[in-house]
Design a protein around this nucleic acid. Sequence first.
DNA 1: TATTTACGTAAAAAATACTTTACATTCTGT
DNA 2: ACAGAATGTAAAGTATTTTTTACGTAAATA
Lengths: 76, 76
Amino acid sequence: MGGKKTSITNHIKRIRLARTELTQAGLAERVGATRQTIIAIEAQKYAPSLELAFRIAHVLNEPVEEVFQFDSSLWD
Amino acid sequence: MGGKKTSITNHIKRIRLARTELTQAGLAERVGATRQTIIAIEAQKYAPSLELAFRIAHVLNEPVEEVFQFDSSLWD
DNA sequence: TATTTACGTAAAAAATACTTTACATTCTGT
DNA sequence: ACAGAATGTAAAGTATTTTTTACGTAAATA
């Protein structure tokens, strides 16, 4: 069920397709995660760990805060 | 035992003491976490989730990448 | 001295992220 | 139409993060 909705969203897919040639599998390999993890994160099923977020941003050549957004308005 | 060393470090304590009046308990309350969590993260026992990292940076008035560092040199 | 405040350790349980495996769908190109 | 590549769903198990609870120590102060 559901799980607790995180207030983190991301533009991984947009950036991946627009600025790289990477497939989900390719990105997964470069960041040291599995394809399933990338699929779930791109589908906003859950937020990555901080470390994985850094790796993804690094591989996509973008700052973390460009790739991931924290919606501080739905805070508490 | 040990667990897998994360390649994330942080300067929460330094920034908290230098730029705010917040205690560990105060920071914990403002970010919606427990005091234990702040203690463990400041002690570099583990890295926070991405969401908590965003909240901490937000409360400390710093960009995520100022508060948290990813050591990409010890990558794979 | 006694009390309060801040910081610290420890450990079990709960919540969340990640992997592994297997199979289904969609798209592209021949 | 067919094959292959890329994307998707699902579910069980492992790993990591966070909470909860309890206790310990040091500093400031009434």
